[in-house]
Design a protein around this nucleic acid. Sequence first.
DNA 1: CTTCATCGTCGAACCGCTTCGACAAAAAGG
DNA 2: CCTTTTTGTCGAAGCGGTTCGACGATGAAG
Lengths: 334, 334
Amino acid sequence: MATIGDVARVAGVSRSTVSYALSGKRSISGDTQRRIQAAIAELGFTVNAGARALATAQTMSIGLLSQFHQDEFAPAMLQYIRSVCDAARQLGYDVLFVTDGDGAGAVKRITSSNQVDGVVLLDVTHADPRVAPLRAARQPGALIGLPSDTAGLDVFDLDFGESARMLVDHLYGLGHREIILISPPEHVFERGGAYGWRFRDAAIERAGRYGIRIHPHFGESQQPAIGVNINAVLDARKSATAMIVHNDATVAALPIVLQARGVRVPDDLSVASLYSRDFGRIFSLPYTAVESSPDKLGRLAVQQLVRRILDPDQAGPTVVKFIAPELMDRGSTT
Amino acid sequence: MATIGDVARVAGVSRSTVSYALSGKRSISGDTQRRIQAAIAELGFTVNAGARALATAQTMSIGLLSQFHQDEFAPAMLQYIRSVCDAARQLGYDVLFVTDGDGAGAVKRITSSNQVDGVVLLDVTHADPRVAPLRAARQPGALIGLPSDTAGLDVFDLDFGESARMLVDHLYGLGHREIILISPPEHVFERGGAYGWRFRDAAIERAGRYGIRIHPHFGESQQPAIGVNINAVLDARKSATAMIVHNDATVAALPIVLQARGVRVPDDLSVASLYSRDFGRIFSLPYTAVESSPDKLGRLAVQQLVRRILDPDQAGPTVVKFIAPELMDRGSTT
DNA sequence: CTTCATCGTCGAACCGCTTCGACAAAAAGG
DNA sequence: CCTTTTTGTCGAAGCGGTTCGACGATGAAG
């Protein structure tokens, strides 16, 4: 493997000159520049990332922490992962992808060993154990999902409250006066998935303001429980004319369950949900829904993280940004 | 940030002694050992991964290359990613996850800059552009998916030929004499996804041997094209009694499409496919299928890769391992 | 024709850790 | 009791880069 010393020798200059030619931090004469480039090409030289990281105290990679819970419905996760990776790469960063069961330990490990310049946490819960070690780390952190304490960290999330209100408004405007709400499974609430109650509470509050009825239920995360659950709910709420589904697993299975039951959408039941365009495409979902924008969230998180990496002080106070929901009308409501 | 020098000073020993205490490569007296541990605890010292990597020429991380093609059906990918990450972590390696559009460039970048000790390539195609730069790299590589030239690299893949034969055998044994085969979309064949033709050719060959009819068709990758396609195929092959689906996107959408068409499985049509247990669970798929074992493939690839990293010479000649398919009978065939 | 910047280059120090050879002290062997 | 071996520790060199200060050469200003 060629080192910068080899390049220097072949080009007949000192190592520091090669380094400056590479970084452009000092001016180099045209002739020298050319000899160095020739030597680099001849030797097939590439900078050793580890050595550079040691010297500059910059690894040019960020950590991405993703949890895979038992019984969790993961497909949507991939979109966040992708957008984070793409955004990072675009800014010149590589991604260290960590899926340790012990998320807090993983955060401590990669930050304290200086393997990364910053960390993105995916799917952050209310009392997420990864937040404390990240806050304690030297590196900045960006979260996707809202924890109880956001001090010292940048947070990005969909505005679930506004999403819920938007959907209730939409259905109310169409004349619906009794609505079923399928929330995430109970274990998501227990684990502290704040988006669950942020959405539900806002929906209930809004329905209350309109004086209409809303029936909140937990979703299930796996078949056949999903089908059983939906059927039970529909049986129990025969007079409801619309359903809001705030759960990936349920909405993915919904078309089949409804078809099996002989329920036509939107003739018999109006359905509205919350998922991303890509998610809907993958599962062939025909429902009017709030766009969950994983691509936008991932990008924003990374951009802010990199801003902080480059200029820890100038980047200003930490941010909590709820991105505005957007309703995609696919005609599943009347 | 505490360095090994700080620990040495606090413990009253030399830096090398601390290093040996950490690695256990030379014996250390009990007393010294204790003082060093105390100093480490007091200072909250962690080894700087970059510095260690530079000194040992080992990064303790592996690269994982994943491509996201336009219009590709990605959910299954996540299972490979997960199993690779889990296996790597279990062996003490972190994962540098790379999704660059330019896969070949990415391989060159992370290997020549010594960011990783080895590389796993996901979803390898027949003439995969990433294979050549990986072969040229100093680091070993493991592939999931079969390229045309496997020289110098370990390859792991499901035995698609045997899978196809197993499914044809299964249906033939149940009395079926005319079978529809839905292969991956045409663009997968064009891109060189060898699993497409490996499966199809074997199925055709086997059907030929039995003297039964098989109708190969390409699948589609997105709704609504998938539904249109399946309906067209079923219309064109009215006398077929069974269908083999070798395509994630199609099989995921199949329940809905068949239900809409009023086709009951297995009464009207026997259906067999190829996907993983988890994939089936996510999409609520009820079909008898060959298990695609992404978890096993990921694990095998990583284990072999690490074996080669640890002992480049002793690990023996490169391996091409087709893992044996396993039929999961879910009762969708009669 | 001095004086002073500016430009281009070099040498040395440093980033934080590992490892080799050396060596004194303690333990084992004859 | 004197070798010989083993044990525990140290200093220095090296991994492959970056960066700072110094310095001669060149050009501009007075």
